[in-house]
Simulated assay, not measured.
Amino acid sequence: MAATIGENVVINSREFEVPRELVYQAWTTPELLARWWGPNGFTNTFHEFDLRPGGEWRFIMHGPNGVDYPNHIEFVEIVPQERIVLKHTSSPEFQVTATFEDLGGRTKVTFRQQFMHAKEFEQAVKYCVEANEQNFDRMGELLKEMSA
């Protein structure tokens, strides 16, 4: 587990004790992704998930406080089992580059979140590092279940 904060960027990474194929499946199968995407206590309703460059992902994150957060994402680049680049076009605007590094049966995931506007970054960085770590925690639980 590691996090780095730079100029308008937050980078989280973590190693998982499962093969890269399983991690990629958890990222690209809507039914699986909906189970772990978001911080603790959040759930998701997916309306569209078109995993291809130019494809759109529209969903609502339901917060534990009862607030709904509409999200619109455009996929920029998909390199199967290696990299997913997506642009979050709803506020706050950011681009995520997720990489999946094969470590011989284990996988290192790096989640690089580049914010488009400094003001949005300044607000988001207050919760982003911890929220991304919670995302990884939730994904890790799913991956354990998938590998059992």
Rank of each mutant, 00 (worst) to 15 (best):
R112Q: 06
P64A: 11
D137V: 00
A124P: 08
G140W: 00
E122W: 01
F16I: 00
A148M: 14
F46A: 07
M1E: 07
E17L: 12
L32E: 06
A148L: 15
W37D: 03
Q134A: 08
R35N: 08
K144V: 11
F42I: 02
G55H: 04
F75Y: 10
W36H: 11
I5C: 09
T89Q: 15
I5T: 09
M139K: 03
G41E: 07
E56Q: 15
L86Y: 14
V96F: 05
G41C: 05
P64Y: 11
A131R: 00
F42D: 04
H117I: 08
D102P: 08
K119P: 09
L143N: 02
P80Q: 05
V96Q: 08
E31A: 12
G105T: 03
R52F: 10
P39C: 10
I60P: 02
E15W: 14
W57K: 02
S91Y: 03
V79I: 10
R83I: 00
Y69T: 00
G63A: 09
F16T: 01
P39T: 07
N65H: 06
R138I: 00
S90N: 13
E56I: 12
L51G: 13
F49K: 04
V67T: 01
V129M: 04
V9M: 07
F111C: 11
Q113V: 01
F121C: 03
W36C: 15
G41N: 06
E120T: 00
P53T: 02
T110K: 04
L143A: 03
T97H: 05
E133C: 15
M139C: 09
E93S: 12
G55A: 05
E17T: 08
V125C: 09
R20C: 11
K108T: 05
V9Y: 06
E122S: 05
V79T: 09
E17V: 12
G105S: 14
N132W: 01
L103Y: 13
E7T: 03
V76H: 07
M116V: 11
A3H: 02
V18D: 10
A98E: 00
D50F: 14
K87Q: 14
F49S: 11
K108E: 12
H117F: 15
S90Q: 00
M116T: 10
Y127D: 13
E82C: 13
